[in-house]
Design a binder for these strands. Structure first.
Lengths: 240, 240
DNA sequence: TAGCATTCCTACCCGTGAGTAAAGAAACAG
DNA sequence: CTGTTTCTTTACTCACGGGTAGGAATGCTA
């Protein structure tokens, strides 16, 4: 609940330096919104590192070089922390949908753009929370809210698939299953990205999109032994 | 650790009726292996329902109509419970690899067979544990073991992809990214299958395989009629 | 500099849940 | 029927962690 004012929490790249608003300058800051965001970011980092249940509020406080009651000064419960991390993550994806809705492109291109942003979101600092937030860990109201947001994203993908089938840019398929497959592949990034950051989220998503678009079955019918390995080089006009 | 004797734990379909070895017959059973399996199955069901951290051993005991020390009579820790559930799940997938290795089929066909079994495993009663077991929840030794098993499966998929590219049955692609995409899509089934069991795991996997094989881009290029199509009900003309 | 609001900490409460000790109930062997 | 083994329970211990009370420090305003 409690749609905060426009704190620029979403869409931020993970700051390598924690840069806590505490202990950085000698004087005590009075920017509430800033500190609140820092608390949520720190929570996201700790959740991402240890998991929600293996992270205590003392851990989060320690990461900020602060004590637990200080955290509670900015947040009312651990659940709220998880909830806000989730929302921050999913908001990036919703933004992608809004952004793409305007573009005069075939649905497949718009879908690809959304999927790329999706991948970036999952690889962001809030990715873990967005993907792994379990509704059983949250009170009913938050759980419902999360489910609703997840469903919105799912329906958005299905809609783009249907539009693509309509306008001929996407092969006929079952939108529901296809959406599950796409979202699943991207969501799963959150599981291994922590260990292997050799690519950015957008790069991963682009690689995935290539697979999804082309499919495993060879395009140009011939079942040639070796030699024919020619990567894709199609889509001139609209891509990019 | 402690590789139990060959208890037929894996490969079993979820028994709708719990069928606890306790409280079913009047006399007290003395089959240790049977009861141990029942404990692990019950744990898997409860973990699947509430999540690992939201499941107490009292819950598991209650599900078996037994008390907590009884559970500890068959198992040494909660961690072991999770570990064994994981192993039971992943064992189904390893079996699929072994089975398929013999078949005289192009690699793509063998891959598809593995993926179908993979989907069944994820949709099985151990699917949740296999997919969501977090290494942070387990002691180092078990964590290493799990990582090793996961890696084995990953490498198995990559190998099939490489073989497929070699024998021409699979379009050239990046095996690592493609394997991540495939496994991710299938793993993610565990997240929504609980809520939507309208299809079996094998059916879902088959649907996924169809998507993966064909890809989203239309096969016969002819269908590219209105490529620059308007997005959803664009009022004005093509806004450039 | 008094006075007020904001921010933060020390010191606590207490429910929960993993894990155990020790004794009781059933089966089995002789 | 007696002793022994196997299984199950009652009745605990104890650490951990979410959350809070109340007060101290700091900054803002006049």
């Amino acid at each position: 609940m409690s749609n905060r004012r426009t704190s620029p929490l979403a869409a931020g790249k993970a700051a390598p330096a924690p840069a806590s608003p505490w202990r950085t300058s000698g004087a005590r800051l009075r920017d509430r919104e800033l500190k609140r965001d820092a608390v949520i970011r720190a929570a996201a980092r700790e959740f991402n590192r240890n998991g929600y249940h293996n992270t205590s509020l003392d851990d989060i406080a320690a990461a900020l070089q602060v004590t637990k009651p200080t955290v509670y000064y900015y947040v009312t419960s651990k659940e709220q922390l998880l909830f806000e991390c989730f929302v921050a993550g999913v908001e990036q994806i919703r933004a992608a949908f809004r952004e793409v809705r305007q573009l005069p492109l075939p649905a497949r291109e718009r879908l690809n753009a959304v999927l790329r942003h999706y991948g970036e979101a999952v690889a962001s600092e809030f990715g873990w929370c967005m993907v792994r937030a379990e509704d059983q860990d949250l009170p009913p109201a938050m759980s419902r809210h999360i489910k609703s947001l997840k469903s919105e994203v799912d329906q958005g993908i299905r809609r783009l698939l249907r539009e693509g089938i309509q306008d001929g840019s996407i092969e006929a398929c079952d939108p529901k299953m296809t959406a599950f497959a796409l979202a699943g592949a991207l969501n799963w990034i959150a599981h291994w990205y922590r260990e292997d950051q050799s690519l950015t989220g957008a790069q991963i998503a682009t690689a995935f999109v290539t697979v999804f678009e082309g499919g495993l079955r060879p395009r140009r019918g011939a079942l040639r032994m070796n030699a024919g390995a020619r990567p894709r080089r199609a889509r001139g006009a609209l891509a990019r």
